Amino acid sequence: MPQAGPGVSPVEGVTYVGIDTLQEQTRLKALRRGYTFNLLVVGRSGLGKSTFVNTLFKATVARRKSGEEEPLPSTTEVKTVSSSLSEGGVRLNLTITDTPGFGDHINNENCWEPIVSYIEAQYGRYLQEEQKVDRLLHIPDTRIHCCVYFIPPTGHSLSSLDVEVLQRLDKIVNVVPVVAKADTLTLEERAAFKERIRADLSDHAIKVYPLQEYEDLDDAPENMKIRERLPFAVVGSTTWHEIHGKKLLGRRSNWGLVEVENKSHNDFAYMRDMLIRTHMQDLIGSTAERHYENFRRARLSTKTTSKVNIVNGQDTDHMEDLNESKI
C-alpha cells in the first residue's frame, strides 16, 4: 500500500480533509494564551485557608502570616494574590482571594457584604468591558470561578452565620464546602458531622457545586460520587515528612502522621482532583454561562426598566400639569 500523502487518508483512495486537526489547533492556541482561574476562600481565621491553598497547588500562592500576628481587621476585607504557574507546558494564571476578618468578631452582622460586593464587582467590570464599542480582543477575566467555604470542625452543624452566608453565595458563585482541619475529628465524628451538614444544606435550600440540574449525562456518575462526599473533610500541610524512605506531606501528632494525600486519611486528594484535574474547566464555564449570565441579565434588565420608568415618569408629570391647568 502506498504511503498517504497530502490530500490522501491512510485508507487508500479516500480523500483526507484534515478536520481531525481542529482539536490540536484549539489545544495549541489555548497553550499559547494560557488559562485563568480565580479562587475565593472564605472562612474564619485559624482554619488553615492559606495552608490549604498552598498545599493544593504545591506552591506559595496564598497570603500567609509571618512573624508577628497580624491585627484583626475591624471589618471583613478582601485581599487578592496573583501568580503564574506552569506544568507540562500549560500556564495557569491563578488569583487567590482571601477574606481576613470574616466571622471573627462578636458582632458579625453583614460581614458577608464585602465578599458579595467583590464578586458582583468583578461581574460588573467584565460586563462594562464587554459593552464597549472598542473593546479588548481578550477581556481580562477577574470573575470568581469557585468559592471554597471553610466550615469549623465543631462536630455539630452549620452555624446561623454559615447558613446566612451560603444562602447568598450560592446564587452568585460556585460554592464548594469543606470541613477544615478534619484530623481534629474522629472518623465517626467526621461522618456524622458531614451528614448533618448535608441535611442543613438541603433544609435551607443551599445549592453547592456540582449542581445536578446543570450537568451533562456523561458527567452524572462522577458528579454523584462528588456530591456523596461533600462537604470535603480536608487536611492541609506544606511540611514534608520522610516515612520509610518516602517523602510525604502531612501533619504529625503524638500518635502518628496524617498524610495529606492519603484518601483513607482525609478528602484532600478527592477535592484536589475535582478542582484541578477534572472540573476546573467546568467551573470556569459554569461561571460564565450561569452566574455571570444571571448577573448580566439582571443588570441590563434593571437599566432598561429604569429608562422606561424615567420616560413614563416625565410623561405622567406632563399629563398632571395639563390636567391641573384645565381645572
Rank of each mutant, 00 (worst) to 15 (best):
Q23Y: 09
Q23F: 12
Q23S: 08
Q23L: 11
Q23G: 14
E24K: 12
Q25L: 14
Q25S: 09
Q25P: 01
Q25A: 04
T26Q: 11
R27G: 10
R27E: 15
A30N: 11
A30C: 08
A30E: 15
A30K: 15
A30D: 14
A30S: 14
A30G: 06
L31W: 12
L31V: 05
R32V: 12
R32K: 13
R32D: 10
R33Y: 00
G34W: 03
G34P: 10
G34M: 07
G34I: 05
Y35G: 00
Y35E: 15
Y35W: 13
T36F: 05
T36D: 15
T36I: 13
N38Y: 01
L39H: 01
L40A: 11
V41K: 06
V42E: 12
V42T: 14
G43R: 02
G43S: 03
G43N: 09
G43M: 02
R44V: 13
S45C: 07
S45F: 04
G46W: 08
G46P: 12
G46Q: 08
L47P: 07
L47G: 02
L47V: 09
L47Y: 03
G48V: 13
G48P: 11
G48F: 07
S50M: 05
T51N: 11
T51Y: 06
T51R: 04
F52I: 06
F52E: 01
V53W: 06
V53K: 00
N54I: 07
N54K: 03
T55Q: 13
L56Y: 03
L56W: 04
F57N: 00
F57P: 00
F57E: 00
F57R: 01
F57G: 01
K58W: 07
A59G: 01
A59N: 09
A59R: 05
T60P: 08
T60C: 07
V61A: 05
V61D: 03
A62K: 01
R63W: 08
R63K: 15
R64I: 07
R64W: 04
S66C: 01
S66R: 04
G67I: 03
G67T: 05
E69L: 14
E70K: 03
E70H: 02
P71V: 05
P71D: 06
P71N: 04
L72G: 03
L72T: 12
P73T: 01
P73F: 03
S74D: 14
S74R: 07
S74K: 14
T75P: 05
T76C: 13
E77V: 06
E77T: 09
E77L: 10
V78C: 13
V78K: 08
K79H: 10
K79A: 02
K79N: 04
T80A: 15
T80E: 15
V81W: 03
S82H: 10
S82N: 14
S83E: 10
S83A: 13
S84M: 09
L85R: 01
L85G: 07
L85A: 08
L85W: 02
S86I: 09
S86G: 02
S86T: 14
S86W: 00
E87C: 09
G89A: 05
G89F: 09
V90F: 08
V90G: 01
V90Q: 10
R91V: 14
R91A: 04
L92W: 04
L92M: 11
L92T: 06
L94I: 12
L94R: 07
L94V: 12
T95Q: 08
T95R: 07
I96V: 15
I96E: 03
I96A: 00
I96K: 00
T97Y: 07
T97W: 02
